[in-house]
Design a protein around this nucleic acid. Structure first.
Length: 708
RNA sequence: GGGCAAUUAGCUCAGUUGGUUAGAGCGUUGCAUUCACAUUGCAAAGGUCACUGGUUCGAAUCCAGUAUUGCCCACCA
């Protein structure tokens, strides 16, 4: 077997992912082809843009990212091989509260509080932290093999990005959609900031429903007796025959001895509790609205740190729960019934602390028109959400939307471009640049708002703020957004209306919502619970291709209960691919260069494999475009392993002994191998590139940019 | 309280518009092995497709209901 010696050696031993992956990634990087401007495609080649869901700078690669980004990489690599100018736009999000939280904790270890060092110094520290750790996740994505255009990487606090954020704010203000108001908002007493309703999480709690007798006729049921100190009315349903005669009368509030009115309001459910509700406009969002309707005063009894205020009299300084106990005790026999009551309380999505509704001065964005735009985009089909059922979640949120509290009382973030008069803080000017003089008092220098914007206010602009002016002309609008369902409203909806408002077009056409990866017993993967599985472990051990295979193999669309055996399957498959390549190369007459792209089908086996290959190519292309990644991978696996390796390669051994069939068999083997590598490349980019590199093909390009 | 999803082999899951013996990966059993790969090949065992009823010539697939599980939403204090 003299003629087989030429390729011997290069495929020796099993495939060593570690040895290949770093080198291959470097080749891709130095080719410059991740940047669509450098692609060897026709000048008028159509662009194809995928927007990376911005990972937080505090993030590190978890299974969700691995899934998310593998699917995006498959799309991008496929489109790139199809000859389009494929751009995968990467970046990181400054993640206001999350990052501030992490850096604060870091400083705390050194015994420093942010208040000691002050705002400016603290922000410097955050930048320092960001510069060290903020790029970590992007490096991890590179190890996964992601072919994003890293030369375009943006951070949501980059100076250019900040300009768009300010412009947006000013634009909304000029549209009349921004307003400032002293309102009861969700407040995290640990983070010391307001939160929007999407930033809340919930926890079930067993508490009590205390029935408190205010007078002989007035008995209310409440889960929060301590807020009674701030009651400014009692409300009943005006249609409640039992109580209509009470409306307009007054009652003395126990412990406080303040007279409060009994009012009628439709929002009251007659069937709950006693049908009478204590109204505490300062400490309940619903009560605030009732208060607005009836012009009730606000009595603030809980402060921003969750302690009772001076208004709370003898309870001043107590924590909420302490005050609750004390008040129940002090009420004595006025508490006529204590009923166990399972209840859901709001907690902060970043630090899990209890949320207190507290009144404060905040900025709000009117959502009506923007929500309408976002609704239309999906209703008209300009943007499609896959699977379709998630459109419902999207529409439901948009149709019940409330104004968005966009100001946050933290330090890390985009400061509001609002400038206050130093003499009169009620007077302000909204402007991207600092005004040269104060229009109000004529003398002061004006000070910028202390508040920063909700992080999602800036990430909503990502599809255009992440692009330079010239890129916007070339690449906006994009095509695809692939993400998990938890940010559909938090982020996707906001990107859609922002794009429509500022660019006149929705930023992408397709939104794919993939399943969530859970543990094998169906629990949420979470670092803090210790239930997470680190994808880097698999990349280390078996290589990125195997990790990608395992993730896509299981990603059918439903939630995934992570199954380790898929990793084993992937590892065996890479071995199979490697060995098949070794066999095919060993079978070739290596004296000649191989150019044959379309061999004949002479034998039945030839015809069958060529036909199957053709069909596979068609279905895989269709499946990738239709986001059926897992199906495509299963089909490729089935074809390569069983049709090609088990059936055709076995047949080829006999065929090559037959005169007149040998040469064509070699061609078929080679053709099927090289074509399969192309089909597999988006899924398993490293091993396919590593093998392709060794094939004796004239004018060979990187597989990365070979024609699909 | 409302909505969505899931329930198929020991485990994790496929099963497009209803159509011959219901599939895959992993696991299990038997046989094979100097010939690309034992990270292998061939073969086999293993399923009243959650339950009940209905539509149909025909249902894992369509309809109604029940049960269990999970997720999301909601200003019932």
């Amino acid at each position: 077997m003299q003629e087989q010696t030429k390729t011997d050696g290069i495929f020796e031993g099993p495939y060593d992912a570690k040895a290949h992956e770093v080198k291959i990634y470097e080749k891709w990087m130095s080719s410059g082809f991740f940047n669509p401007d450098n692609l060897p495609v026709e000048k008028d080649a159509e662009p194809y843009i995928v927007y990376m869901p911005l990972p937080n700078v505090t993030g590190s690669l978890h299974m969700g990212h691995a899934l998310d980004n593998t699917l995006q990489d498959i799309s991008v690599r496929y489109q790139r091989m199809k000859g389009r100018r494929a751009l995968w736009l990467p970046g990181t999000d400054h993640a206001g509260i999350a990052t501030q939280f992490v850096v604060e904790k870091d400083l705390k270890k050194q015994g420093i509080s942010r208040f000691e060092i002050g705002r400016e110094k603290f922000i410097e520290k955050v930048w320092e932290w960001k510069n060290i750790y903020g790029g970590l996740i992007l490096e991890q994505l590179k190890r996964l093999g992601c072919s994003a255009d890293w030369s375009r990487t943006r951070f949501t606090m980059d100076p250019e990005y900040a300009i768009d954020v300010q412009k947006t704010f000013v634009h909304y203000y000029e549209r009349g959609w921004l307003y400032r108001g002293f309102r009861t908002v969700n407040w995290c007493t640990r983070c010391g900031t307001s939160l929007s309703e999407l930033e809340l999480e919930y926890k079930d709690e067993d508490t009590n429903l205390w029935h408190i007798k205010y007078s002989d006729e007035i008995i209310v049921a409440t889960t929060r007796p301590e807020t009674m100190l701030g009651d400014t009315a009692i409300a009943v349903n005006p249609n409640d025959a039992r109580y209509t005669k009470l409306i307009g009368t007054k009652v003395m509030l126990p412990l406080v001895n303040r007279e409060i009115p009994i009012i009628g309001d439709e929002a009251i459910d007659q069937t709950f509790g006693t049908g009478m509700v204590k109204v505490t406009p300062a400490h309940d969002v619903l009560d605030f609205e009732i208060g607005e309707r009836h012009k009730l005063p606000m009595v603030i009894v809980i402060d921003a740190r969750g302690k009772m205020t001076k208004e709370a009299g003898v309870y001043e300084g107590m924590k909420v729960l302490e005050a609750r106990e004390k008040i129940i005790a002090d009420l004595g026999d006025k508490v006529i019934k204590i009923e166990p009551y399972p209840h859901r309380v709001s907690i902060c999505y970043r630090c899990n602390s209890l949320i207190e509704p507290i009144p404060s001065m905040q900025w709000f964005l009117k959502m009506k028109e923007l929500a309408g735009k976002a609704t239309d985009a999906v209703q008209s089909g300009k943007v499609s959400i896959t699977p379709e059922r998630f459109s419902k979640t999207y529409f439901d949120w948009l149709s019940n939307i409330r104004d968005w509290t966009i100001s946050r009382q933290i330090w890390w973030g985009h400061r509001l471009p609002v400038w206050y008069c130093e003499k009169d803080s009620e007077k302000f000017k909204v402007s991207a640049e600092k005004p040269s003089a104060c229009e109000h008092c004529g003398e002061c220098k004006m000070v910028q708002a202390d508040d920063v914007l909700d992080t999602w206010f800036s990430s909503a602009l990502w599809p255009f703020a992440g692009l330079s002016e010239s890129d916007r002309k070339k690449y906006y609008p994009g095509h695809t957004l692939i993400t998990a369902r938890d940010i559909l409203n938090l982020w996707v909806a906001r990107m859609i209306y922002s794009g429509l408002e500022f660019m006149g077009e929705a930023p992408f056409k397709n939104v794919l919502i993939h399943g969530t990866i859970m543990t094998k017993d169906g629990k949420r993967m979470s670092k803090s619970l210790g239930t997470g599985i680190d994808p880097l472990k698999y990349i280390e051990e078996y290589g990125a291709d195997v990790a990608r295979f395992a993730v896509v193999w299981q990603a059918s669309g439903q939630d995934i209960r992570w199954d380790e055996t898929a990793v084993i399957g992937g590892r065996k498959f890479t071995n199979k691919i490697w060995n098949a390549a070794k066999f095919v190369m060993g079978s070739q007459n290596a004296e000649t260069q191989i150019n044959e792209e379309n061999p004949d089908g002479i034998t039945e086996a030839d015809k069958k494999i060529l036909e199957e290959l053709k069909n596979l190519k068609e279905s895989v292309g269709k499946d990738i475009e239709g986001f059926e990644f897992s199906k495509a991978l299963h089909d490729i696996y089935e074809f390569f392993w069983h049709s090609f390796c088990d059936t055709y390669i076995e047949a080829s051994k006999e065929q090559m002994k037959v005169d007149g069939q040998k040469e064509n068999t070699q061609k078929v083997l080679f053709h099927v191998l090289s074509s399969s590598l192309k089909l597999m490349h988006p899924f398993m980019p490293f091993i396919t590139e590593a093998i392709y590199e060794k094939l004796p093909i004239e004018n060979k390009k990187l597989l990365l940019v070979e024609k699909w």
